[in-house]
Simulated assay, not measured.
Amino acid sequence: MSSAGQSTVPFTIPSVSGEVSDAVVKVLDSGWITTGPQTAAFEQEFADYLGAAHVVAVASCTTALELCLRGLELPPGSAVLTPSLTFCGAINAILHAGHRPVLVDIDEDTLVPSPETVAAAAARVKPAAMIVQNQGGYPVDVAALAEAAGLDRTRVVEDAAHGPGAARGGKPVGAESFAACFSFYATKNMPIGEGGAIATSDEGLQEKVRAMRLHGMSKDSWKRYLPGGSWRYDVKQVGLKANMTDVQASIGRAQLAALPEWQRRRAEIVAAYDAAFRDLPGLTLPQRNLGGIQHAWHLYQVRVPDRDAISAELEAAGVSTSVHFIPANQMTSYRDILGADECARVPVTDRVGEELLSLPLYPGLTPDGQDRVIAALTEALRTRS
């Protein structure tokens, strides 16, 4: 309980469609619960939602990133550009694929790399590939960043973990991507609990990652055990155990149907935050929807002075917050791997990273809960003005 005797406003609560329970029961009763017809149906429906040519469902966004990097068949130890303001899983995917992360600084207005920061990083090395991230749901300009890196689009992997619902120029994130990787983790806009997907316009890449998600086997168990199927299979390229199950896929199909309404609700909450915070001193609001950009609003990230103390004050007032993200260059393991010189290459990330604070933003956030968030942050900042 907070000091006022009220229950805490959680940072997030997963949204669950009313159709999920029935969908899961049907799968459990079907006699087939691993990768099979539900997974295939979910892949097609998510591809239709995005307007993508192909979707391959996998175990997580992290494994999606690794599978795509493996699918590029780069020489071992290749330099892969990545923002440092990212989740550790994205850095791990580069390392697990056998490559070397090269850190890229951000633009402080958008919280994503700019063509200038990408070009500066590319000038230090000759990158073989790049991971770009839609931070908080802000859709990056993939073409501009690829050009700045001197890379063909077929060497760019999009971390779209925050991307469902985002669009640029009227095209959803993932619609025309060579490789866009999505997350269905419990906190995401379309939560399954765990799970991910790869959207690609490339037939060859989808064939590779489809095989590699199941050890590199030429046929999954559904194809082997169908009437008339054969137990015989081949392994042409070493893969991972990274498939999605039909239980997960059935949840995903129900959640996908509810996603548009959830996105509408997120936009309502963001509009209320914007109106309340617009003139609040000491506060920098999140990236704006400008120039044909449709933000997915996975996160409402503000920048505040004295961030850690303000976060503690909000917690005492019964409002939970989070930070996205602790920059990778500040993590012990990555500092050991990359070295101090590389980790010093992202000064804007280091400065902005100390100011970022993510406020509660989820479809189930009540008007009363949002009022409490607004009141708590307003009070914390006014005592500092």
Rank of each mutant, 00 (worst) to 15 (best):
A23V: 06
I131P: 07
C61Y: 07
D279H: 10
R210Q: 15
L280C: 07
S78F: 00
T187I: 12
Y225Q: 15
L299N: 13
M130K: 11
K223G: 00
H324L: 04
I251V: 15
L28N: 11
A316E: 13
E207T: 11
T366C: 08
V9H: 01
Q301R: 01
K26C: 12
W297E: 03
G174P: 09
G174E: 08
T86R: 10
G228Y: 03
E354K: 15
Q133H: 14
E313W: 09
G165I: 03
A97C: 07
F277E: 08
Y185S: 15
V157P: 01
G165V: 03
D159M: 06
I192K: 05
T154N: 15
D279M: 04
V104G: 10
I192V: 15
S15D: 13
R210K: 13
V118I: 10
V80N: 06
V132K: 08
G89M: 08
L359E: 00
A57F: 05
A64D: 04
G339N: 11
M244T: 10
F178R: 01
V304P: 03
T284H: 08
G51I: 04
I374V: 15
R351D: 13
A242V: 03
S60F: 04
T284K: 10
V142L: 03
M1V: 14
G89P: 11
G18M: 06
